[in-house]
């Protein structure tokens, strides 16, 4: 093989070099952990024809087709694309946006995670940055998607309000709440707002809808779960609308692009330069 392999541009196109010479494990673009049946059939055919007839599911809801020969790359890409499947990305850029099924399917969901994941993907996927950058989106405090592992994690929540007129005093919500924020007094609920984590369980459990919940986004920053492990941190209160959410995520990515050294993860940059200025920037974006 006289041709020189340009690993950088291959990585950009989702081709992960294998230890077997001349072979790549091809990463596919998956958004929010979902693929159509038709896309899966395409993937299946390509894996049979060009790979070893199997796929690998990655830890972040991605699919890879191992054992793609370097010489087949163009055909493989074309066949996938014809079946509606795009290749993913590796390297220093915005990666696969992950999501749980969220409010569209799960009874616990507070936000439509798949919709948000798609919007984040449309906005940022593949953008070049100093290092890899991961978004994850989960529908509620149950945190099935483990958002704090991500550079930016988005978690659904609810800002809740109590209507004592409507309340029948059944006390179901005081047990549904896991944070101990609710107690009964004289047949009505006492709400200790400082203990509330916006899980929305009171809203979901009240039989007469005496709790109302406004869905919102709880955002964490600088999570990483590789060689170095750090739990992403919240900087601003729960965000009530998409516009503010994207202002905040834009600000985070901008700050990272401006401040990070090459090959430095978001959290490492925050630790090196200090997070005061970053927090100010996020707060300013939050306030608009």
């Amino acid at each position: 093989m006289a041709e020189k392999i340009d690993y950088g541009s291959l990585k950009k196109g989702g081709f992960m070099r294998q230890k077997q010479k001349g072979y790549f494990s091809l990463r596919l673009a998956v958004v929010g952990g979902q693929m159509t049946g038709e896309q899966l059939l395409t993937v299946s055919k390509v894996a049979e024809k060009y790979g070893h007839g199997y796929v690998h599911m990655t830890s972040r809801q991605g699919i890879e087709i191992p054992f793609i020969n370097f010489n087949d790359i163009e055909e493989v890409k074309a066949e996938l694309l014809a079946g509606g499947v795009k290749t993913g990305v590796c390297g220093p850029r915005v990666r696969t946006v992950t999501a749980c099924q969220g409010a569209a399917v799960c009874p616990s969901g507070c936000i439509d995670t798949e919709d948000i994941a798609q919007k984040i993907n449309d906005r940022y996927f593949g953008r070049e940055l100093p290092h890899k950058f991961k978004f994850g989106c989960t529908g509620c405090q149950n945190n099935c998607l483990k958002t704090e592992e991500n550079d930016v994690g988005i978690k659904g929540g609810m800002t809740v309000t109590y209507d004592s007129e409507a309340c029948i005093g059944c006390s179901v919500c005081t047990k549904a709440c896991r944070e101990g924020a609710l107690s009964m007094e004289n047949g009505k609920v006492v709400f200790e707002e400082s203990k509330c984590n916006h899980c929305g369980r009171c809203v979901k459990s009240c039989p007469v809808d005496a709790w109302k919940g406004e869905p919102g986004y709880i955002v964490s920053f600088g999570g990483t779960f590789g060689n170095f492990v750090y739990k992403g941190e919240e900087v601003v209160p729960i965000i009530g609308d998409e516009e503010t959410l994207f202002r905040v995520t834009d600000a985070a990515i901008e700050w990272f692009a401006e401040n990070a050294n090459p090959s430095e993860r978001f959290r490492k940059t925050l630790m090196r330069v200090g997070d005061e200025e970053f927090k100010e920037k996020i707060k300013a974006a939050f306030e608009g």
């Binding site: 009874p107 029948i168 005093g169 059944c170 549904a176 369980r201 459990s205 009240c206 039989p207």
Partner: peptide
């Protein structure tokens, strides 16, 4: 209680 609510029954207390 919440699952029973989601089934559509009426929770009293």
């Amino acid at each position: 209680p919440r699952s029973i609510k989601e089934e559509g029954h009426k929770i009293l207390k």
